[in-house]
Design a protein around this nucleic acid. Sequence first.
DNA 1: ACCTGAACACCGTTCAAGT
DNA 2: ACCTGAACACCGTTCAAGT
Lengths: 225, 225
Amino acid sequence: MTGSVPQRSRPGPRRGLTERAILDAALRLVDAGGAEALSVRSVAAELGIAPNALYTYFRTKADLVAALGDDLLGRLDLGAARTDGDWRPAVVRLASDLRDTLLAHPGVVPLLMHTGFAGPGALAAGEVLLELLSRAGLPDDDAARASYLLQTYVLGTVALDAAELPPGAPRPDDATRTAARRAALGGADPARLPRTAAAADVVAAYNGDAQFRWGLDRLLDGLRG
Amino acid sequence: MTGSVPQRSRPGPRRGLTERAILDAALRLVDAGGAEALSVRSVAAELGIAPNALYTYFRTKADLVAALGDDLLGRLDLGAARTDGDWRPAVVRLASDLRDTLLAHPGVVPLLMHTGFAGPGALAAGEVLLELLSRAGLPDDDAARASYLLQTYVLGTVALDAAELPPGAPRPDDATRTAARRAALGGADPARLPRTAAAADVVAAYNGDAQFRWGLDRLLDGLRG
DNA sequence: ACCTGAACACCGTTCAAGT
DNA sequence: ACCTGAACACCGTTCAAGT
């Protein structure tokens, strides 16, 4: 009656399952189907495990979502910004990297908005930003305020862009985002909202990397001594 | 067998139920319990009706949420901004009103981030903003860009504030928000993140209306000709 | 420690039926 | 047109049990 070792049975541990593998699976689902495609059960199915197995790694779904967002922020190349000579191009680069990283996974953005920005990745990026602004000659309290200002600008921009995108369209290019914005403003009645309707026609100037850079430059101009 | 008129029976119409009443009930729930307290079923229970009765007024829950967000934006007093003399105080006033309106109902903010900003309320506010920036002397395309810049700033600020707040705490004051931010930054290790940790100590300068005004003023400085 | 099966109290939405 | 009851296919989470 001594059978062979139960190699393919159900309960026991699995060597392949890690926090990393879970976050990768979650990101795959969000990229493919937007934020609403992410559920404890869908992640478990993606990994081929029982739903409640995830609770060994994350206390709640909210914790998983927070880790997913911060994981993205942790991918920023902070070393480059840190060693650049001038503070201003370094700030522009850091802000642009953050924007690119988030817009590469637009489904994550609304999730980030729920969870705050206090994970290790977010804090590390904030620290570098404070360094750069200090190097710019700002006193500590102004640097703290300016850091907050820059963060809100990047996140606000990304949130507006991401909110207008249809779910399940990862890595949208400028053309996709411009079309989304035109669609959002397209309903404006020219009789009642003449300027908004006109802005919809010049929407190409409204969006994309150039628009982001324009705003960022205005903002940094405002920070000058 | 002809009974009295069935005045208290189940199926028929109800005169008291309107789109307004539904949105009011939804806002009550979000204010009391945060975004996650809002469900089709909870709204129905609040109104004393069957869950599916709501589908007479809103095609989906997403439509209800979008209407709830835009309803809030529609409460802005645009007339005041429109008739003010100088453009700059009018812009400051409009931006501050928007921030106050949203922070009075922080649970709505993450919901807004999902749905975009293309309802009548959002478009009307955007139109006034374009008027003011045009009055400031900006050419049309710069006014469009500046309007977007200002929107992202306000929404980014509010989103960061709201994300750090515990759910179910409506109308938080500056002290509450400052405490939330200190809690969020409190985990920073002074050895690895010295500037972040120091910023947590001067967090009062980081947050609240004064911080918002500081950033807004920097931003408007950057827009000067 | 790590995983499963089964269950609990929920969801959003649809459909047929009643007024 | 407006509402209900019942059902469908889902949720997040817990608990006892297996390895």
